[in-house]
Simulated assay, not measured.
Amino acid sequence: MKKVLLLTCVLCLAASLAGAADTIKIGVMAPLTGAWASEGQEMKQIVDLLGEELNAKGGLLGQQVEIISEDDGGDPKTAALAAQRLSTQEVIASIGTYGSAITEASQNIYDEAGILQVATGSTAVRLSEKGLQYFFRTSPRDDDQGKVIARTIMEKGVKKVAVLHDNSTYSKGLADEAKAILEEQGIEIVFYDALTPGENDYTAILTKLKAAAPEIVLATTYYPETGLLLRQKKEMGWDVQLVGGDANSNPDLIKIAGADAAAGYLMICPPVPKDLPSEEAQNFLAAFEKKYGGTPGSIWAVLAGDAFLVIAEAIKATESTDPEELADYLHTSLKDFPGLTGLLSFNEKGDRVGDVYRVYTVDDQGNFKLLQ
């Protein structure tokens, strides 16, 4: 009887292992909880939907694609644990995440495990300056963004600018990029300091900002903090214009600030989902709305979709799931791939090639409106 039970267990284990080998596993690391949960939930939804569509067409290399999601909570320590969990689950690639500091906490884990990583909402320059073979990103870099921000501010004809960041990898990096360009052009930086993210009251630092008498404020903070800054600035009767970066490309910014306080805000970011030009993008957004009852609020979730698409394209083109072959293909052979957010190619560092930044404002109705 014991022998029969042992044989049964062995057969069950073998069947389980065979079943695992029948799928191609792709990980998603995203902030499914925490302050950025709206971003992470939509990242997961988009990748899940693309996976379902691909599987309905037969999958990849005769196998179904299995999406395995892990919550990084928008926190570097949690992200490291999430990356470690994914690296033990036979994923060949990992998509994500949102937040440069969060992605940075996972980079070495994926690289040492030989897992392809395609970041989606992480724009800090230094992420791709480390020579990591398996690191790519569908989002652009902060040095490109800093140029557009500086140009947008200079076009206003102002001479005194305040710069506010939150000391994170993304926020301080972008602030420094734009600040350096502005100073080179003779613009005076009358204030440069950091706030503490996650607080509920920024009136003290707004009071210091106002005392510096800037003609415009560059706040490279994330949307929860920027929304509060806009609302509390309005409450204290200060009508200086705020300019921000792509970490504010989320409709929750306007919900937090209120439409009246957000009106006139300037944001530099890739196109928001409704402004994506291609027929493929609009068809996918229609499919997303049919499945989930609304359209994605943020471009960062759509960039997670692009990450899935380029991973799938590399697997199809190489007829392989070997990360080294996939990385080589993405570095050298993927050219002008039609992604959801536009044509995709990567350079030798794994950075997306091409300028995708646009300038938006918030209109009186609380909508992001494309300016240029």
Score class of each variant (00 low, 15 high):
Lys44Ala: 08
Gln45His: 03
Gln45Phe: 01
Gln45Asn: 12
Ile46Gly: 06
Val47Asp: 04
Asp48Met: 04
Asp48Thr: 05
Leu49Gly: 09
Leu50Trp: 01
Gly51Cys: 04
Gly51Trp: 00
Gly51Thr: 02
Glu52Thr: 06
Glu53Arg: 10
Glu53Asp: 12
Glu53Lys: 15
Glu53Trp: 03
Asn55Cys: 06
Asn55Ser: 08
Asn55Trp: 11
Asn55Tyr: 04
Lys57Pro: 11
Gly58Thr: 13
Gly58Lys: 13
Gly58Trp: 14
Gly58Gln: 13
Gly59Gln: 15
Gly59Cys: 08
Leu61Val: 11
Leu61Asn: 07
Gly62Leu: 07
Gly62Asp: 02
Gly62Thr: 11
Gln63Met: 14
Gln63Tyr: 15
Gln63Leu: 13
Gln63Val: 11
Gln64Asp: 15
Gln64Ser: 14
Val65Ile: 11
Glu66Arg: 00
Glu66Ala: 02
Ile67Gln: 01
Ile67Thr: 09
Ile67Asp: 06
Ile67Phe: 00
Ile68Asp: 04
Ile68Val: 14
Ile68Phe: 01
Ser69Thr: 12
Glu70Ala: 07
Glu70Phe: 00
Glu70Arg: 12
Glu70Val: 07
Asp71Glu: 03
Asp72His: 03
Asp72Leu: 02
Gly73Lys: 15
Gly73Ala: 09
Gly73Arg: 13
Gly73Phe: 04
Gly74Glu: 06
Asp75Arg: 14
Pro76Ala: 10
Pro76Lys: 12
Pro76His: 10
Pro76Phe: 06
Pro76Trp: 03
Pro76Tyr: 04
Lys77Thr: 15
Thr78Gln: 15
Thr78Ala: 13
Thr78Lys: 15
Thr78Asn: 14
Thr78Met: 13
Ala79Trp: 01
Ala79Thr: 10
Ala80Asn: 03
Ala80Trp: 10
Leu81Phe: 05
Leu81Arg: 12
Leu81Asn: 11
Leu81Val: 11
Ala82Leu: 06
Ala82Gln: 02
Ala82Tyr: 00
Ala82Arg: 02
Ala82Glu: 02
Ala83Ile: 07
Ala83Asp: 05
Ala83Tyr: 06
Gln84His: 06
Arg85Met: 07
Arg85Glu: 04
Arg85Trp: 04
Arg85Tyr: 04
Arg85Cys: 00
Leu86Gln: 08
Thr88Val: 02
Thr88Lys: 14
Gln89Met: 05
Gln89Leu: 04
Gln89Ala: 01
Gln89His: 03
Val91Cys: 09
Ala93Tyr: 14
Ser94Cys: 13
Ser94Gln: 11
Ser94Glu: 12
Ile95Tyr: 12
Ile95Ala: 09
Gly96Thr: 09
Gly96Arg: 09
Thr97Val: 08
Tyr98Ser: 01
Tyr98Cys: 04
Tyr98Gly: 06
Gly99Glu: 08
Ser100Pro: 07
Ala101Trp: 08
Ile102Asp: 14
Ile102Tyr: 13
Ile102Arg: 15
Thr103Lys: 12
Glu104Asp: 14
Glu104Thr: 09
Glu104Pro: 09
Glu104Trp: 07
Gln107Phe: 03
Gln107Val: 12
Gln107Tyr: 05
Gln107Asp: 08
Asn108Ala: 06
Ile109Thr: 12
Ile109Phe: 03
Ile109Tyr: 04
Tyr110Met: 00
Tyr110Ile: 02
Asp111Gly: 05
Asp111Val: 02
Glu112Leu: 03
